[in-house]
Structure formats: structure tokens, C-alpha cells
Design a protein around this nucleic acid. Sequence first.
RNA 1: AGGCACGUAGCUCAGUGGUAGAGCACCGCUCUGACACGGCGGGGGUCGCCGGUUCAAGCCCGGCCGUGCCUACCA
Length: 844
Amino acid sequence: MATLILPEIPKDYDAPSIEARCRALWEESGIHRYDPDAPGEVFSVDTPPPYVSAAHLHVGHAMSYTQAEIIIRYQRMKGRKVFYPMGFDDNGLPTERYVEKTYNINKRLTTRAAFRALCLEETRKGAAQYEELWRGLGLSVDWTLRYSTIDDHCRRTAQKSFLDLFGKGRVYRSNEPVLWDVHYETALAQADLDSMARKGKLHDIAFTAQADGSPLVISTTRPELIPACVALYHHPEDERYAHLKGTSAIVPLFGHEVPILTDETVDPAFGTGLMMVCTFGDGEDVRKWKRDKLATRLVIGPDGKMLPLAGQFAGMTAELARNAIVSALAEAGFHRKSITVEQNVSIAERSGVPVEFNMAPQWFIRVLDIKPQMLARSAELNWNPAWMKVRLDHWIEGLKYDWNISRQRFYGVPFPVWYCQGCNEPVLADAASLPVDPVEDPCPVSACPHCGSAEFRGESDVMDTWMTSSLSPLINANWAETPGRKGDMSLHPMTVRVQAFEIIRTWLFYTLIKSDAHLGTLPWKDVMISGWGLNENGKKISKSDLEKYTDKDGYNRYEPFGVIHKFGADALRYWAAGSHLGHDMRFNEKDVKDGRKLAVKLWNAARFVLMQIEGFDPEAPRPTFAERQPEDRWLLTELNKIVPVVSEGFESYNYAVSRESVDRFFWATFCDDYLEMVKHRFWKPELYTEEARVSARATLWESLRVILGLYAPFVPFTTEDLYQAIYRPVEGTVSLHVTRFPEFDAERTAEVPEMLVVGGILRAVRQLRTEARLSQTRALEAVVVDLSAASPELTEVVQAMKASIQAVSRAAEVRFDTAAYATDVAGLTVGIVAGELPEKTPTA
RNA sequence: AGGCACGUAGCUCAGUGGUAGAGCACCGCUCUGACACGGCGGGGGUCGCCGGUUCAAGCCCGGCCGUGCCUACCA
């Protein structure tokens, strides 16, 4: 059998060329492609479709996507059939605004189809940038499974979802007070709200009792809603106001009469204990309005300006009207006092302006009735980390409104609905015709089945963007049965949802709703929730962070392409694996340098191994484990020990535990100790048998291979490139990433107690060298071992390990004599004899 | 206001009952035949504070303080 000619590995670690080689290999070999017919269990991943128009990519994105991908690579190496698609979200306000701005177009002069074409074009550009980053990071996405929430398949799926929910009675249309964004002039869902703390003024305002003209003082932070006042309330047991029961009050300035009612939720201790209820100040007003059938007096319009009911204040913004009304009240003698208070106001997440209520017919998905069911679904899910579950549970418990899915915007997935102009009944699209746009497409029926009218109007509202993205598992599984689309319903439920924590209440919650409503199942078995990569000050990475901090090469510190360019993709990935799942992590370049160091160290360790094993034939029989040298048995045992630890870390999404374990072994045990020891066998052949070298070569060959496997999910480029050069010619597998992940070897578990002695002497000699100011590698005349206090067993071990002791000491001989320095082995003391310094420079 | 997470060496973070850890930074020594993007050694912490349980607590329990996030109708 011919000896294998081992390859030369370039001396310098060159990340860009390594990455280029690997990317080409992965692309050509198609190893990331999902093959439904392959054997094995499926591991499918529902990963966030980013907003392409947002395009502010930073290292935080790289972090969370990488954390998930590390697990995916592991699962692939465990032999699972990986289904890893990538989508892009191009619905919603961000895209609409972006395209409007970029092309400077007037939406009223274009059609949705034309607008959609522009969005698709922008999506294509934006997605290309994302794709380049994902590929650059080594994400093993199957790009043939790509989807875009604007494409026909996704629109079809979203519209099918609507039809199905309509058929099941889960969707309804109603003219209700809805949360309203006065900036973008659209309805919102509860999940689209944010809150903002600010200082406000609490005003005491006098109403007038209808019965006797006495003043009734209420406290309000929203005096501009006084014209909208429809009732006063007090607590039913508040004796101060008991006599008002059944009477009414006159609203100051505006003069209309409102009833005085009671409600348990009124806090008698707040303000005067008397409150006004308006159309509509908050959700509580809406609740009382519904329950007590109060009058309706809308005073704030869809654009946030005061309506005619506000009288002289009509046309003002609510903000302006607030001050103007207070002044008018003061002049008229109704204003009593004002105090400054801290208040929390609800704002629209997208526009940042305080939300108002508006009334318009909207489509809703009924969710309030299934809160307990959703909490049960939450409990069924395998949450990683487990404590993220309460975030969803709290959200579900706090839900107050059904999910409003109507948006009064131009662009998005249309509702597949027309309305009869005669009786206003909705007519739904045919399932077979999806996707449709009712603004442009004709109504599927020629006469209304209810009233016979032939006039129809297509719904011009579009769906909430989450209506589509909440279907990602069903988009992937081709629930809509789009022809030519990969994937089928055997993929649903998927294995794991991967996302960050801030979209638990939206993406995660809505997806649970959809799979439950459509199919009565969970959308996935597991969820993996990542934290955020923060800037150096521990804050969210902002746009200005991405504008500042640019170095002389033009690379921004938080910008992933720049980081990859400077340190390599593996370095950035390694950094990403440093935070425990779900925890935020501050980004520092110096921490990325650690990743770079690891990659370089791996490279050099591999080069070293190749140098030492020259002449090794990987296909020839190797010594059994029992036949190996003690150092070799020890190394293989230590390596074998970490394999289950690493695997269990990955299985439970705790990649950080896995990384730490491999790191400790690789740096300390393998490089610092074992490689240093094993050198001697090759450099001092006269002290060792050929069997000892054969044992070393076999051990180096095998252990490097396992190390590459263990590190493969973290640093896929470096490990792959080394695998290609060293092991592929022997093993024949196209890529390291489709080889089997290292497995625990039940035979390689023998402890090697001799190594405790050798290790103890190694540490002692290193210490003694430092104290004597000697280089660690300088040859010593002798290492002195004092066995006077040693047990017979210890003495025997020392004798047997004499060559190793000499090796780790780099000493010309081992002397048995008295010595003072205590090792960490009981009964064993050592010393060193430096001897003459070798002449370095030639003598004259 | 409630919930969750966090508070461990100058910095970033490990450490789920048994004598305080890593990396970076710092101070020495070392350019030795894988690697100076390296190696060896060292200094540095009353583990936020106060109680409790235990033979034993950074770790468990209670309370407080601080930070971040989530939730919340105090009009």
C-alpha cells in the first residue's frame, strides 16, 4: 500500500481565499440543498424574513442568524435532512415608504400592480445584499427555497388564509373603534403599539350639575377631548357623588348634556374621583361606550386634526387644541388647576406618534376568545431559553382587542373581497383564482347572491403585513399548493422557529394563531430565541452607530461586511457563539479578534500535525487504543470526554456551552500540553521506539479530525478548508459539513493516571523556568526528581514515564536526587539544572 | 406598578451546594524547528447589599438597591 502524499498547507492563514474556496465548493456540490427523498429525519427551520428595504445591516443581525445556523450545521452533521429556506419581507409600511421615496412617485397615479413591480425590483436589489451577507457569513441556506412575501406564492397563501379563516368564522368585519395612526392614517393592531413615557399636565375642569348648577370637577390629561365627552363616571361606592346617580352634567364650553354613571374601575383617590369618558380617549372609554351604549362624538379625524364637533377648535391638531381649550376654559372660569404628571402614552411603533381611535369598517381575526387555547399552545412549545415563554404568556393575558388586519394603505397583500354596492355584502374570491387584486380584477360573480345587484366595489384596504409573515411555516410547506413550489405539508409543523425576542408578540404569536386556526397544530416543535448584539455602550445599534466609527479603510465597526473583511467570517461567527442563547451581547472588535486567533491557531496546529506525521499511511492498520502510548491514550480519552458535552450543548440549543468545551480542550489540552509533549518523540528519535512514533502519528491524525468536526459548526470555513486538504482525499466525502459529527467512543475511556504525574512535573518545570528566568524551550542539563517521599506506586509510575518526564522538561537527562519544589502530586518534588547556556553567536 | 433577565477581576463574560474561572487589558520572561495573530509565569475579586437554610452558598430561600427589557386604563 502506497504511503499517502500529505499535502502542504500554506504557512499564512488567508481568510479571503479560504472563504472563496469554501463558498465555491458549497455552491457547486449543492450540499445545502434539501432533498425530500433522502433518508433521515427532517430538521426544518423557520427563520425571519428580513425587511429588505430597511437594509441597515449590522453585527446584531449577523449574531442572531449565526447562532441559529451553528445549530443547523450540527444537525446536518447528525445526519438530519435540513430544510433551511430564507425569505424576504417586502410588505408593509417600510417598503411602501421606501419605494415612494426612492422613485418619488404619487401612489394615486399608479396601480398596485405597477407599484408592486417597483417593490419587486427594490426587493431584488435589497435581497441581493442580504444574500451576499448570508453567504459571506457561511449560512447554509438552501437558496432554491427562497420566498418573498410579495410574490405570487405568498400572496396566494395569505389570501387562502383569509378565505379559510372566513369560512371558519374566525374572521369578521365590523365598524368598531380602532387604534389609529394619525401620521400614516391607518388602523393598527395592539401589537403595533409602543409606549412612551412623557410629562403631561393633569387639569381639573369644572362641569356643571344639571340639577342644581353646582360645579362637578373632573381631572383630565386630555382637555382637547372635552367636546367628545359623552359621560361622567364615579365609583359606585363613592359617597361624595352618590347623590348624582341618574342625573346629568353640562359640558363646559360646549354645553351638551352628558349622563353621570358609575363604574368599579374608577379610582376614588385619583384626582377628584370623578372622570370623564370620551369618544375615545383610551381602551377603557371604548369598553364603557360599548357596555353603556354611550353617545358617539368623534372629534379627532383620521389625520389627527379636530373635527367640526370641536367647534371653534376644528381644524387644529389635537396638540394645539389641547392648549387652546385649556385657555378658553380658564377664561370662562371652568379651569381650576393643573399639575404636572408622568404619563405613559401609547404610540404607533412605525410613526412614533400617539395613537388615537377612529371608526371605520375593518376586518378582524377573533383572538380574544381563544386566549386559554393560545396559552396552552405556548405551554406545548419547547422554548429555548425557557424563560422567554412568559413574555408571550403575558402578552396573551394582556390582549384587549381582536387582531385588526385591515390597513388603510396602498401597498400590501389585498383582501380577496368585493362588496356589493346594493347591500354591502362581501363577495369572496374563488380559491382557485388566487392571488387576486379586487381593485383591478373583476368580481367573480355577476350578480349579488343577496340582492341581485350587479355593482361591486373591490376592497381597497390591504392586509397587515403580519397576516402574511405569520404564515411562513405554511408558505414553506406549500399549504397553498402553488404549482412548481418545493415543499409539502409533511414539513408542517416545522422543527424550529428561530427569532429574536422583540417579535414574540407579533411574529411568534400570530404564527401560533394561524397554525392553530388552519390546522389545529403548533407551527413548530421548538423555538430558539436569540438576544441582540449591542454596541459598545450596551445600547441597541443605531443608524448613527452605522454612520460613525468608520476606520481608515472605510469600514464601519458594526457593519458585518467590514468585520468579515478585517477578521474573517469565521471570526465573526465565533464571536456570535460567545453569548448564551437569549442574552444580549456587546460587540467589541477585540472579541472578534479572539475568533481570528482561534482560526489561525487551528490552521497552525493542522500544519504542525502534517509536519510530524510525514510518512503516515492513513489506510494502513493502526495500533489499538490499548497499544498507544500513555500520552496518546490520555489525549484521546480527554477528547472523547468532551464529545457528549458538545453534542448535548447543540441538542439543547446551548451552542455556547459546546464552544467553551471545545475551546478548553483545544487550547489547553491539545495545543499547550499534548503537542508540546509529542514533539519530543519526533525530535529525539534516539529516546523513543518506532512504535511510539507510530502511536503518535495515529493519534495526531485521529484527534485533529475530531477537532475539525467539533469546530465545524462554529468556524465552517477554516475547518472545511483543512478537511479538504487533509482528510477528503482519504475519506472521499465531498464536504466536512456532510460528514458525521464526532461520536463518543465507548472504548476510549480509560483514565491514564500516569499523566497526572507528567502533568504535575510539566507545570512545576514551567514555573521553575520562569523563576530562573529561562526560556521555556531552552534545553536543560537535567530535571531533578525527588522520590524520597514518594509511595512505591508513585515511584513506579515515575520510572515508567521517565522519557515523558524528560520530554516535557526538555532536559538532557532525568536525575533522581533531592529537590525542593513541590509539584501538585503528593509526595513528589522536583528541581531543574540549567547547565551552560549554548553559544548562540559564532565565536570569533 | 407588575413580570422577566442581569448585577462575579479594569473590560466582555463562564461558573445551578464543596477551597473563586476564561479571554482581553496590565506586569515580567521568552522571536524555541506549528503559530510573536505565539508560548510560559504573575498581580488583581469581602462574587450588588442585608438576613436566612446548610457541616458547607457566587450558586438555594426572603428582603432591599441598581441596570436593561417586556407588560400596564390611573383618566
